[in-house]
Design a protein around this nucleic acid. Structure first.
Lengths: 199, 199
DNA sequence: TCTATCTTGAACTGATCGGTCCAAGATGTG
DNA sequence: CACATCTTGGACCGATCAGTTCAAGATAGA
């Protein structure tokens, strides 16, 4: 069985990503990755790199995949900032509701483990969270919020989005997760109304 | 050196708790615990139990210590619900600002690892998060919120409190953490004002 | 001071970790 | 068919894991 790759790279990377996502870096062994991807140890090392490299690829894959979805959700921010932020949270809520995917969030999980991760991985995790904040800030500014309010709401919304990962892991119901988001969306609605009132 | 205990139990448990808090269950070896506490392996096993048992004790110790602080902060909720919730978040913000203590939160970290923790530990982590919600709900009800609003704000505030753990691990500044909390406190302020307006 | 008791340090066990190596064998080309 | 190329499976390595065992030695009561 050689000469041609015996597996699909995207499928294998997805399987590895989900394994890391479910169990975290420390609790995922290379044997776990082997079982999850269906690949042999030597195939993993030759095709996907060592554990640290593979984790980095999975982290970036995760950030890119859901980053695109978050961007799409926020794309209507200029005309409908409230709906955009609502759609932003819906990306997370739908991901959590998907029974095919683990609860939680690979970025949040990695951020929590920063003190024991390699510097490169820690930097990527920090960067992914920073991107999320910038995404939200840009959207809120496009929705005509003041710079200061946009900054405040962006960091708050990014934090609440991460909190959904923690709460879903702890068994919070979809209704509870929605309640968490609703308070934030209502607060944003108030802020946008107040903003508009000033003109 | 024997016949009398050579160490202080509280000091040792605190050291173990901080080690777990900083590095998490999976990334803490018994040798790490030995170094952190200054105790030998056999002393740990004979006096503190095996790794799982010790982690459970540390989790409960953490929950009790900060649980008491959260209770104290919320004790003025009946007369000053807004100040109570503000004080609640201050407990977390001050803990994060303390350079003697790790960033993050042992409960949040454990919740994120629930899929790979022992059932007993997972149950305690879930329970600790549930307690936090009940604490907040009781305080908000005492502050004359409707049952439904109290439920919603309690789960939201508990989630935002957990988000501070994630964000602090990712290197968020004290000002950013405060901004996260401010949005929630402002939203609560609005809700309480609206509530009062109804009478 | 004698002795029973208990803590301590260190060596040890079997399992698992991340990572490497290499022969076996399937492939595409000539 | 023959050959060079590349993937694959599995054995293997040293390090580290959680947990056990036990002799050495300090203590407390007599």
């Amino acid at each position: 069985m050689a000469g041609k790759k015996q597996f699909d790279m995207d499928t294998a990377l997805d399987a590895a990503m989900i394994q890391f996502w479910r169990a975290g870096y420390a609790d995922t062994s290379v044997d776990d990755l082997s079982r999850a991807t269906g690949l042999n140890r030597s195939s993993i090392y030759s095709s996907l790199g060592d554990k640290d490299t593979l984790f980095l690829r999975c982290l970036d894959r995760y950030a890119a995949r859901y980053g695109d979805k978050y961007d799409a959700a926020l794309s209507c921010a200029a005309s409908e900032p409230l709906a955009a932020v609502r759609a932003f949270f819906d990306v997370t809520l739908e991901r959590i509701a998907d029974p095919e995917l683990p609860d939680g969030c690979l970025i949040a999980q990695s951020a929590m483990a920063i003190p024991v991760l390699s510097p490169a991985v820690a930097a990527h995790a920090r960067q992914a969270l920073g991107f999320q904040r910038l995404r939200l800030r840009a959207a809120l500014k496009a929705g005509r919020m003041t710079d200061q309010d946009a900054e405040t709401f962006a960091v708050h919304a990014a934090a609440v989005n991460q909190s959904l990962a923690v709460m879903s892991r702890a068994g919070a119901s979809p209704a509870q997760l929605l309640a968490i988001v609703d308070v934030t969306v209502d607060a944003l609605s108030q802020a946008l109304r107040a903003q508009r009132g000033r003109f």
